[in-house]
């Protein structure tokens, strides 16, 4: 358990993970469930336990689409996507933590891809 990291994530997310009643609706509604190693309800629970480093190393951080389905449908108002975002930020803010850099972009482009996708990805994947 990393107390400092936990506090940092809680502060950054603004979420209260103690409101969770373990119903799993966030994971039930998540469109990226099958692509994730740790699912939204696990993010909430692991942050509660202070097991942040495991999450920071997980690919799951980059599978969340920030579609807010879990945020709007959580019966308890826990806002799991904001928890995921806070952990992801903790990861990309580390030295060498950027997942995407501008020089990687040209290879990803196709003629129809909207700019929106690139700026969003940079916002999500890099600091």
């Amino acid at each position: 358990m990393n107390k400092n990291l936990k506090e940092q994530v809680l502060r950054s997310s603004g979420a209260n993970v103690l409101k969770c009643m373990r119903c799993g609706k966030c994971s039930a509604t998540c469109p990226s469930y099958d692509e994730m190693e740790y699912h939204p309800h696990q993010f909430v629970y692991m942050v509660e336990k202070g097991d942040i480093e495991t999450l920071m190393k997980s690919e799951s951080l980059y599978r969340c689409l920030t579609c807010f389905a879990c945020v709007d449908r959580c019966p308890r108002g826990v806002e799991p996507a904001k928890v995921v975002e806070a952990v992801r930020l903790a990861a990309v803010r580390q030295q060498g933590g950027n997942r995407l850099s501008p020089d990687m972009i040209p290879d990803m482009l196709d003629e129809d891809l909207p700019q929106q996708a690139i700026v969003t990805a940079l916002r999500k994947y890099a600091k």
């Binding site: 469109p31 990226s32 692509e35 599978r63 689409l65 891809l113 996708a117």
Partner: peptide, 22 residues
């Protein structure tokens, strides 16, 4: 009102394909 996959198309085409197909 479900997600199309959004920016994940850059990183994981398969996931974007699955979502938008759904």
């Amino acid at each position: 009102n479900e997600c199309c996959g959004g920016y994940i198309t850059l990183e994981d085409k398969a996931q974007a394909q699955k979502r938008s197909a759904a």
